[in-house]
Amino acid sequence: MSSLSKAGVPDIPHTKRKMDKAKAKKYFFKYVVSLVRWIFILGMCFVVLYPLFSKIMISFMSIEDMYNASVHYIPQQFTFNNYLNAWTRFGGWETFVNTFILTLLCSVLQVASATLVGYGLARFKFRLNKLVFVLVIVAMLLPPDLLFSPRYGIFLNLGLSMRWLFGEDFTMIGDTYIPMLAFAITCTGLKCSLYIFLMRQFFRGMPKELEEAAYVDGAGPLKTFIKIMLPGAVSMMVTVFLFSFVWQWLDTSYTSVFCKNIDLISTRFSDLSNSWVTDPSATTSAGGSTALSTSLVKNAGIVIIIAPLIVLYAFTQRFFVESISRSGLVG
């Protein structure tokens, strides 16, 4: 104040100008930052979306397009042949329905059991709580293939011992969904420990007062869980369902061991791409190489596999983003 009054009137516009300058600098800085951020994010989105984009575009191309240097990404000879080809190689609707049933059953069971176990670990004090949680973490850390051989043995022997019930040809492993469903119910299947962990963290983040109020009003733990906690956990359950559905749908490690005789999209497709049978119609049509035509069919196949998942993601991403912000992940 004193310095200002000493300098007198002329100083006031000066400081004002200075302030304007600072303001301008601040705004300039802000815009530059947001511009850089936009460019960065666009670049990252490009990195993520480009492979998908190129796959979709390639899947519509005919083999002539591949040899035509003027074709960049928009196919000139638009064709659905790759899709038809891939679809018959999958085994058509039967395979699709098989995969859908298995995936849906597994993911629903996984979500249900992960929710129960996660809630049990988050809210109830019992002697083995810590031990069970440690087991969840251990099951998460171990490579699944370590347990595949023994699990295979268990179900093989179980199937053999049940032959008196189901007939002489009965093999539980490979022919039935039973092993996969057993893993799903007991929450020891594909990445199930991660789901338990997520549900546990989520329930721990929910306010305790909710349950206490319910207990005071006379509701038992079961009723409290169903009526109070479950509605609040919908977003996380949808997220876990999304993860579980997607990973089960694309999984080849469990299904190639435990459902090897059932036609599933993922296993069928990876088998076919490992030892791709030459398709005469594809080679003769353009006289081109088989490798290239199989590659086109492969791209179409990837789009077929991914498409249901993208649709699912589009519907559930709202819950997904919400559950992240409320996931209560604090280490």
């Binding site: 059991s113 129960l116 176990v117 809630y119 049990g120 670990l121 109830f124 004090k125 019992f126 083995l128 709580n129 069970v132 087991l135 969840v136 119910i185 007991t186 929450c187 020891t188 338990i196 869980f225």
Partner: peptide, 8 residues
């Protein structure tokens, strides 16, 4: 607690 964690 045991009941809820029983599956796992």
């Amino acid at each position: 607690g045991y009941l809820f964690c029983l599956p796992f």
